[in-house]
């Protein structure tokens, strides 16, 4: 699936998008896999209360299922308007 990063999450991880092969069943399982990869991921995902997640472009929670999802996006709270 595609994993997307925005704003400071993108800056900390160092890329806007990547394709990830994963067996994770939920968002939090995907986060654990990413955290284990490298320090920059561990740093970006160190405080989940500072992050929001969207699965297939719908805002959701970290315990949401991701089976069959095409894209998962991580970003800070939004600041539009």
């Amino acid at each position: 699936m595609d994993v997307l990063y925005f704003a400071w999450v993108r800056e900390r991880i160092g890329l806007p998008k990547e394709t990830v092969e994963t067996k994770a069943a939920t968002v939090i399982e995907l986060v654990e896999e990413l955290r284990a990869r490298e320090e920059r991921y561990a740093l970006a995902f160190s405080d989940l209360s500072a992050l929001r997640v969207a699965v297939d472009q719908d805002l959701t929670d970290f315990d949401a299922p991701i089976n069959g999802a095409r894209e998962v996006a991580f970003f800070p709270p939004m600041t539009g308007g």
């Binding site: 925005f6 969207a54 805002l59 970003f75 800070p76 709270p77 600041t79 539009g80 308007g81």
Partner: peptide
């Protein structure tokens, strides 16, 4: 306006003469 502020996926970054920072979301907007 209330929902555009904190439920539409936009992120603001301010480049000032002193710094270059992402704008933090505000509890009052939530």
């Amino acid at each position: 306006m209330d929902f555009l502020k904190s439920r539409a996926p936009f992120w603001k970054k301010e480049q000032t003469f002193a710094s270059n920072d992402w704008v933090a979301s505000k509890q009052e907007d939530e």
